[in-house]
């Protein structure tokens, strides 16, 4: 059984149904990406998985546990970290406090090695530990959001548009970091509009359109697929 299995997921907000019956699976140790245009239902899928919104129908199974009715903080305790769209930095908490919030649900209080690891990945954060999170630049906030998620030592990391608003150089750094996070044992479900980069690092990918999966395959396969290249990689 896959680490995360989503089956027949329907979810949305008010009168809008953004996700209309999605099936997907993420195996332990994989990087899986969801690509698709704005409004395809990518973020809504992540939000339904991590419990921020309640699915209207369908099942979400994580490590053998059903999540559809579980409160988000309980899902975090099972080992899932969600870096939401917009990064979710606490602007009035210091950078250091933001990192501690990442480890909030951990039973052990031995955080030093995890902090060291975050400082190694993102040396910039170490220089800014005392600053309020809101004073960081967009790129630094993204680093903090990912570093904070790692503090939870998640089995599964959900990343929503980590490249949004970042310079190409920073995007490279972030994607290299995602790969190294996976190599250190975590599983990653990545939502991206930057399909080119996402397909490059992903083991497998799903293409979403209007709330449904229209295509799936390995990152490599989809990267070669003509319809994908036309629609998402900007080729004619």
């Amino acid at each position: 059984m896959a680490l995360l299995e989503v089956s027949g997921l329907i979810a949305g907000y008010g009168a809008i149904t953004a996700v209309k019956g999605i099936d997907l699976a993420v195996e332990e140790g994989e990087i899986v990406t969801l690509i698709g245009s704005n409004g395809a239902g990518k973020s809504t899928t992540l939000r339904a998985v991590s419990g921020i919104i309640r699915p209207r129908a369908g099942t979400v199974t994580f490590g053998g546990r059903r999540l559809e009715r579980m409160a988000p903080h309980r899902i975090v305790q099972l080992g899932m970290s969600h870096v939401p769209e917009g990064r979710g930095i606490f602007h009035r908490l210091s950078v250091y406090e933001n990192l501690l919030m990442g480890a909030y649900q951990r039973k052990d209080r031995d955080l030093d090695s995890d902090l060291q690891r975050v400082y190694e990945l993102f040396p910039r954060l170490k220089e800014r530990l005392g600053q309020p999170g809101g004073t960081l630049s967009g790129g630094e906030q993204q680093m903090l959001a990912i570093g904070r998620a790692l503090m939870a030592r998640p089995r599964l990391l959900l990343l929503d548009e980590p490249s949004m608003g970042l310079s190409p150089l920073l995007v490279e750094t972030i994607f290299a970091t995602i790969t190294s996070i996976r190599d250190q044992g975590a599983t990653v479900l990545l939502v991206e509009q930057n399909a080119l980069m996402a397909l490059e690092i992903a083991d497998r990918a799903y293409v979403l359109e209007s709330g449904q999966v229209t295509l799936k395959g390995t990152g490599e396969e989809l990267g070669r697929d003509d319809s994908v290249r036309r629609a998402y990689l900007g080729e004619e």
Partner: peptide
């Protein structure tokens, strides 16, 4: 303080 600033994000921290 985290809940005061953003309850949804706080719940994502556990």
């Amino acid at each position: 303080r985290a809940v005061a600033e953003n309850p949804a994000n706080a719940s994502l921290m556990g």
